[in-house]
Simulated assay, not measured.
Amino acid sequence: MKVLMALYRRSLAFDELLALWGGAALGLFLRLYVGWQFFKAGMVKLGDWSATLALFREEYHVPLLAPELAAYLGAAGELVLPLLLFAGLLSRPAALGLLLVNCMAVLSYPQLFSFECPAAINDHFYWGVMLLALLVYGPGRISLDAWLGRRAC
């Protein structure tokens, strides 16, 4: 019984450690990982802007927007919003913005559903879940949002 109580006390200490820093580490990891995925896509768009415009004119069918405007907005979102996530500044609005970019990418390129390898659509699904987690739970303690929140109180 003594051994069981000792193990239980150690598990409580571990629970406290996870409660204090586990969410912070997870928030940081999610922000960096999902932000990097979108930032890379934005850099690819900038790398060959004429190809990007051609894709938006011919392949991607963004509803209600002219292809050129959709290309500019998509690239801007993929470059600016990840920077906010990296810093943990305005994290929830940035996560919401990237979630909208992600949804629009899936809606405007329905071929994702018809590929033999489901990895492409699965990536968008996983990114969406990560962004939802950031939107609901916030960026964690290791963020400018948390730092500014502590300073404001």
Rank of each mutant, 00 (worst) to 15 (best):
N102I: 03
Y72G: 03
L100K: 02
P67Y: 13
A66D: 10
A87H: 01
M43G: 02
L89N: 02
L84M: 12
F56Q: 11
G88P: 13
K45N: 08
L107R: 06
M43N: 05
L69T: 15
L96Q: 11
A75K: 09
F56W: 07
R57K: 14
P110R: 13
L84S: 03
L84Q: 07
L90A: 12
K45D: 02
L98R: 07
S91A: 13
R57Q: 15
G47T: 07
G77N: 10
L96S: 08
Y60W: 11
P110N: 09
M104P: 00
Y72L: 13
P67L: 09
M104G: 09
D48T: 10
E78H: 06
R92E: 09
G42H: 01
S91Y: 03
A71L: 04
G77D: 06
A94I: 00
G77H: 05
L100T: 05
L112Y: 12
G47S: 10
R57G: 02
P67D: 04
E58Q: 15
G77W: 04
K45M: 10
G42Y: 05
L81F: 14
V44W: 09
P82W: 12
K40L: 12
Y72I: 12
L89D: 05
L64W: 13
V80Q: 01
L98D: 01
L79R: 03
P63K: 15
L90C: 07
L85C: 04
H61L: 12
E58P: 03
V101L: 02
Y109N: 13
P93G: 14
S91T: 13
Q111T: 04
V62E: 08
F86K: 07
L107N: 00
T52M: 03
G97R: 06
L81C: 12
Y60P: 00
P110C: 09
P93R: 11
A54S: 13
N102E: 06
A94H: 00
L73N: 04
E59W: 11
A41C: 11
G88Q: 11
A105P: 01
S108V: 04
K40S: 07
K45E: 05
K40G: 05
F56P: 01
H61K: 15
F113G: 14
G88K: 08
C103E: 03
K40T: 13
L65P: 00
E59P: 00
S91N: 08
A95N: 08
V101K: 04
S50W: 09
V101M: 05
R57T: 14
G42M: 10
G47I: 04
S108E: 00
A94E: 04
P110W: 15
Q111D: 00
S91V: 03
L96V: 15
L98T: 05
G47D: 07
L90M: 08
M104A: 13
L81G: 06
A76C: 00
G97L: 02
L100F: 14
L83H: 02
L85I: 00
E59T: 14
P82T: 12
K45L: 07
L73G: 10
M104Y: 01
G42C: 08
F113Y: 12
L55R: 14
A94P: 06
L53P: 02
G97E: 07
L46S: 09
G47N: 06
